[in-house]
Design a protein around this nucleic acid. Structure first.
Length: 259
DNA sequence: TACCAGGACCTCG
DNA sequence: CGAGGTCATGGT
């Protein structure tokens, strides 16, 4: 898998694969200075959520009526992160109330219209657009990509708040308290409970984040439990009573990332 | 062709 | 609060 990232204003293409030793990261085209290796490893840890202690999850899961199969069935599976706050927020907004196929189409159009790219050997790699770039465009620019007026306003609005410096990932992380972070995110137009929870889960890696209204989650539970129809919010609340034990922060030392 | 999709916001009671 | 309507458009 290839991934283009930007560190210290420099574009860096990563080639990432798994080996028996761990995750192997290579720089196929532009070997950067050694000094940047640590930053790349740090990015990978965040992205792959490598700091989360799965053993803690497994202990709770083994004794849970819904999750008991997970330690074996999905051994090693983690929640892939979205390290960039603007990308996480934008992606969540794009995915609000539409099917994922179309959401991916919108994301691709946004990236190919406003994102930076690097072309090597006739292959183009893209970066997600920056909030700075999006803060300077108009609703009409996104309407052309078939964003709804509402979504265009939301995303540009978020970009403007971030460009003003009033919203940063660092400041949110500093708050720590789940409800405090949720409240500050939900003050922003376009961010409701689902989006706030989704971003806390995918970007901030907050252990208490739980998008209980997520349709994907409902379908997953239906399929996992072999239900005739999707569980209601109340059903899920009952299932999730014991999952609150997972809401305490528990980090491991990172596993090895070879570069 | 209906109905649904990884919701949010607004109004009204 | 909580229910109900509105927005808005491609997928299946």
């Amino acid at each position: 898998m290839y991934k283009l990232i930007k560190l210290n204003d420099a574009l860096i293409l990563l080639k990432i694969r798994s080996t028996s030793q761990g995750i192997l990261v290579e720089f196929p085209f532009n070997p950067p200075s050694i000094s940047i290796h640590e930053e790349v490893a740090s990015y990978i840890w965040q992205w792959f959520d490598l700091r989360t202690d799965l053993n803690h999850f497994y202990e709770v899961a083994r004794q849970d009526a819904v999750l008991y199969q997970f330690p074996q069935k999905y051994y090693g599976l983690r929640i892939m992160g979205i390290p960039d706050l603007f990308e996480a927020l934008s992606w969540a907004i794009m995915g609000q109330q539409i099917n994922l196929t179309f959401a991916y189409t919108l994301k691709r159009r946004l990236i190919e219209c406003f994102g930076e790219s690097l072309t090597i050997n006739h292959h183009t790699y893209w970066l997600f657009p920056t909030y700075k770039k999006i803060s300077a465009i108009d609703v009409e620019d996104l309407r052309k990509l078939q964003f709804t007026t509402r979504k265009a306003e939301y995303i540009i609005g978020v970009a403007k708040i971030m460009a003003s410096g009033e919203l940063t990932k660092e400041a949110l992380l500093k708050k720590q308290d789940y409800h405090l972070i949720q409240k500050s995110l939900m003050q922003i137009r376009g961010i409701g409970t689902w989006t706030a929870d989704y971003v806390m889960m995918k970007c901030l890696h907050h252990p208490s984040a739980f998008p209980i209204a997520d349709v994907g989650l409902h379908n997953a539970l239906k399929s996992h439990l072999g239900l005739a129809c999707k569980p209601t919010i109340d059903d899920i609340k009952k299932m999730a009573i014991n999952w609150k034990k997972l809401g305490s922060i528990c980090y491991l030392l990172p596993m090895e990332v070879t570069i």
